[in-house]
Design a protein around this nucleic acid. Structure first.
Lengths: 302, 302
DNA sequence: CATGACTATCAATTATTTGTTGAAAATGAT
DNA sequence: ATCATTTTCAACAAATAATTGATAGTCATG
């Protein structure tokens, strides 16, 4: 066996559970992937995959090769990556998944420029807030808003993510202006329902830096930030939003900032990627590009 | 970097100290080796070898790649070797070095048959008793007579190597027949001078299995077994010889066996090879071939 | 149960890479 | 200085890989 790429392909096939998906993710035609797997099996003289058109599973030999081979491929990548002084060409298909609202609002306008900068990259953009398993879905990169909990991924902070409490002037005229977090208990609060459940405890910081937790409730909730924003603009209640998300509305006066003296713990906007030793140049280029655009003065900060 | 073969080539180049030698040893044309090294350097973006036409040495990066890469290549070989169920074709150039006397006398007549058995192998035979550094000299295989001390090599015993004490009838008529090892102190003994120095202490076993060491001396010594044999046939003294070496002379009566009641510790005839995980099929085939010819009834045993 | 959407493989063509050969340039030894 | 080696280069031939379009198998769906 000479080609380590065949081994990489095999590993990718196992990760994605499909020859077609692996081929796409490596910018190969499906036929090539198929015949290279066959070559690998022929050279080893062993059947690695039991395959039907609809499902794959590894033979015992395949399992063994996968287990031991993965370490090998990673070692080789780290070895060559350590030596290689300058990255190679920025090319291939960049597969990125991003938070829907943030992506369409702030990333999308930048994409033409990025494509112009790197003529040999193709982009495949997935807008979705749910996808967690980057490697299992074959993405190079995810762009996520909020806390980074997952440890199997490496994250790079692209920008800070200040969150604010806001409501429409109409709502405030009717219901009054809250002065402290405790006041929120008597207001209609609009809640985001995430994958971890309803987020009905809001955290603030008082003047002395102490954490204040306030349970809130209301008559409207959604898993879509955009719906929440429409609701708060319509005067349905008070919402906690990322600054970038309501930046426009605050500037135009359709929304109003609340409790400015009780700042909310800031999180970040992150680029996350599978923990690989060797980051493809196109991924690095994209992250650097975004970081350069957002870094010091994101468009949503005053 | 995709081709692990390029890395292997690079390692071989470092072992042999020459691109040409490495190319020969891998059955490649020199030009291919050259351009594959260049490809490796281009892909890594790093210069690995400082080369003039006359000498090579690795750059720091080259050293690093060699150190870490060698383990990698070996891991890959053992992994694939462990999976691979049947060996591949017996082909390529088999480079073997062997003890001169034994090689010309017993191996040489078998070579045509071996070549006939495997049409796609070429043979490169080196007759020399000195070469120790197999891997450094680019040999696949060595055939050695005697004790195997070197631990960096793996050895397979091809046949036993009984040694005997002998002298010509004419010498014995003049000097008398020794009855015990101690008698040898009063005889002319012909000594082999090896790379470890003059071998002037001979070891025997008495009837109870105890070791008897006897220092001997004489007026003739050589590093060439053949000269020693000629000398003992000419009646110059008593010599200790491998049985295969004097088998003919003993049968024809030109030499006579001495001290048959004090056998000498038997050693062996060994195939030794560099400690690689994966033995090329041509090497295995050759060893099996020789073992089959010598194994149970070597031609020099009665 | 048939249809449709995918999937893997096959066969034929095209493109790319790899290997060979012979010549040239460079180097150290005689 | 010449000679024998060594590495590299350049042009060509051979082998290999990738693409395309076609075929057959499989599962979910209506």
């Amino acid at each position: 066996m000479d080609r380590i790429g065949d081994l990489s392909l095999f590993l990718r096939v196992l990760d994605l559970g499909s020859i077609s998906a692996a081929a796409r993710s490596l910018d190969l035609s499906v036929a090539v992937a198929s015949q290279r797997l066959k070559r690998l099996e022929r050279e080893l003289g062993v059947r690695l995959l039991h395959r039907t058109t609809r499902q794959l599973h590894a033979t015992p030999e395949g399992m063994q090769l996968a287990e031991q081979g993965r370490a090998l491929v990673e070692d080789l990548e780290s070895l060559t990556g350590g030596l290689r002084q300058s990255a190679t060409e920025v090319s291939g298909t960049l597969r990125v998944t991003m938070s829907a609202a943030f992506g369409s609002q702030y990333v999308s306008p930048l994409l033409p420029e990025f494509l112009g900068l790197h003529p040999r990259v193709k982009l495949s953009v997935n807008l979705d807030d749910q996808i967690v398993d980057l490697v299992g879905s074959g993405f190079d990169l995810g762009i996520r808003v909020g806390e980074m909990g997952d440890s199997s991924l490496v994250a790079r902070r692209l920008a800070s993510n200040r969150r604010v409490l806001c409501a429409s002037p109409a709502y405030l005229q009717t219901h009054g202006l809250p002065r402290t977090p405790a006041d929120l208990a008597r207001h209609d609060c609009l809640l985001l329902v995430g994958s971890q459940g309803r987020q009905d405890v809001w955290h603030f910081t008082d003047r002395k830096g102490r954490d204040i937790a306030q349970r809130v409730q209301g008559r409207f909730e959604s898993n879509q930030g955009a719906l929440l924003r429409d609701a708060v603009v319509a005067g349905l209640g008070i919402a906690m939003h990322s600054l970038w998300h309501v930046h426009e509305q605050l500037r135009s006066g359709r929304l109003q900032l609340l409790l400015p003296d009780y700042p909310i713990h800031a999180t970040g906007i992150y680029a996350v990627m599978p923990q690989r030793r060797l980051v493809p140049p196109r991924v690095r280029a994209f992250i650097d590009f975004l970081a350069g655009r957002f870094g010091d003065h994101p468009p949503w900060e005053c």
